[in-house]
């Protein structure tokens, strides 16, 4: 085993890092169920985010379940001079494609359909890889985590779009757009996946390395 590129890691050196302010502290010995606070900013110090695997799994599974009604149920009703039409997230994208707006359609498709699913699948892969202690592509997996954390907010696009549409197209019998139940599921998926990304602790990707190489 070559130690040439072995780097020191805080926890292995007996140090706790505050994720809020970056203060590094040495803790005497941390028994189960006890807690310390960061001396600089008073945030709770944990070696790793508590129960991270269970909590992230719970959020990810909830996200998968809600993803189905979010795509099945209509998100809005459009009433235009007499005829009313229900629109789902997917039919909104199809409509943009049909009227020839490929770029915008693709953008909405990515933000509303691909991104939430990609986040869920990405987090699932990360969770499984951490639980199985995979030793490969740690750098890429950390990068995947950062992408997941970064793009999540753009899924709010459809929620904002609906809030603008229902506010502007409100002309009584002539033309009205009303929100529908699908939007509740969709908004929940967006928020739950954002929380799931926040709960996940990427340091666990790097944690099992020494024991794995030693065996």
């Amino acid at each position: 085993m070559s130690n040439a590129n072995h780097k020191h890691r805080a926890l292995e050196a007996g140090l706790l890092t505050c994720l809020e302010c970056g203060q590094i502290s040495r803790v005497a010995k941390l028994p189960e169920g006890s807690s310390v606070r960061c001396p600089a900013c008073r945030a709770t110090l944990e070696p790793r985010k508590a129960n991270m695997i269970t909590r992230t799994w719970a959020l990810v599974l909830t996200g998968y379940i809600l993803y189905i009604p979010a795509n099945l149920f209509p998100i809005m009703t459009m009433e235009m001079v007499g005829n009313s039409e229900k629109e789902t997230i997917f039919s909104g994208v199809v409509e943009l494609f049909q009227s020839g707006m490929w770029a915008i359609g693709l953008l909405v498709f990515c933000a509303s359909i691909t991104v939430p699913l990609m986040k869920l699948v990405g987090l699932t892969v990360l969770l499984i890889s951490v639980q199985c202690g995979w030793n490969w592509r740690k750098r890429d997996r950390t990068r995947l985590y950062r992408v997941i954390e970064f793009i999540g907010r753009w899924s709010m696009l459809d929620v904002f779009l609906l809030s603008i549409l229902v506010a502007v197209v409100n002309l009584g019998g002539v033309a009205t757009i009303d929100p529908e139940i699908g939007m509740v599921f969709f908004a929940s998926v967006v928020i739950i996946t954002m929380f799931a990304a926040k709960t996940f602790d990427p340091r666990l990707i790097w944690d099992r390395a020494p024991t794995q190489t030693a065996s």
Partner: peptide, 21 residues
């Protein structure tokens, strides 16, 4: 944070924290 006084440790000597139950 630095200006506030966090991370003001000298290399190698971190303040030792006693855990509270």
């Amino acid at each position: 944070w630095r200006r506030f006084g966090a991370r003001s440790d000298k290399a190698g000597s971190w303040n030792l924290l006693k855990p509270k139950a």
